[in-house]
Amino acid sequence: MGGMVRTPLTPEERERGERLGLLLREARGGRSMAQVAAEAGVSAETLRKIETGRAPTPAFFTVAALAAVLGLSMDELAAMCVPVAA
């Protein structure tokens, strides 16, 4: 019984995940992770993983919901999180 094999993240994906996490953390400000997660309809665990860069490729729906709650535009997030061209 093998689990799902996760492909290792590329450095770009990891960096993008860290930038996304930082942006969300800053936007959250003084609100608790649990509060923001509940408002966005995601688990606090999911939000924690995204904020710490451990879920660098979260579902679009998840990011969109968090962006809405935090007052971030998807354009801003996309600009932050596009892979940087070498």
Rank of each mutant, 00 (worst) to 15 (best):
T62C: 06
E76L: 13
D75Y: 11
A64S: 07
T46H: 05
L66G: 01
A68D: 14
I50S: 02
A64H: 11
R48C: 09
G71V: 07
L72N: 09
A79S: 14
A79I: 14
A37G: 05
A68Y: 07
L70F: 02
A44Q: 15
G41D: 06
A79Q: 13
T57N: 14
A44G: 10
G53D: 10
V69F: 04
T52S: 15
G41R: 03
R48V: 07
A67F: 02
L72F: 08
L77A: 07
A67K: 04
P58F: 08
S73T: 15
A67W: 00
A55G: 05
S73L: 12
A37P: 00
L72T: 06
A68L: 10
K49V: 00
S43Q: 05
R54E: 14
T62D: 03
T62N: 06
G71W: 03
E51I: 12
A64R: 08
G41L: 08
R54P: 04
R54I: 00
T52V: 08
I50G: 00
A44I: 03
T57G: 07
M74N: 07
G71C: 12
A44C: 04
T57S: 10
L70W: 04
E39A: 14
L72A: 07
A44F: 03
T57A: 13
F61K: 09
T62W: 01
K49Q: 07
F60R: 12
L70K: 02
A40K: 04
L66K: 01
F61T: 12
G53V: 11
A40R: 00
K49Y: 04
V42D: 02
A40T: 06
R54K: 14
R54F: 05
M74L: 15
A68P: 00
P56K: 09
S73G: 10
R54D: 05
G41V: 02
L70N: 03
A40N: 01
I50W: 05
A65R: 08
A79F: 14
L70V: 12
F61Q: 08
R54W: 01
T57R: 13
L72G: 05
E76D: 13
L77G: 05
T62G: 01
A68I: 00
F60H: 09
P58C: 10
M74D: 08
I50R: 02
L66E: 02
A59D: 13
D75N: 15
R54M: 06
E39S: 08
L47I: 10
V63K: 01
V42E: 02
R54V: 07
S43W: 07
G53Y: 12
T62A: 10
P58G: 05
D75H: 14
V69H: 05
G71T: 09
A38V: 02
A67C: 06
L77I: 15
G53W: 12
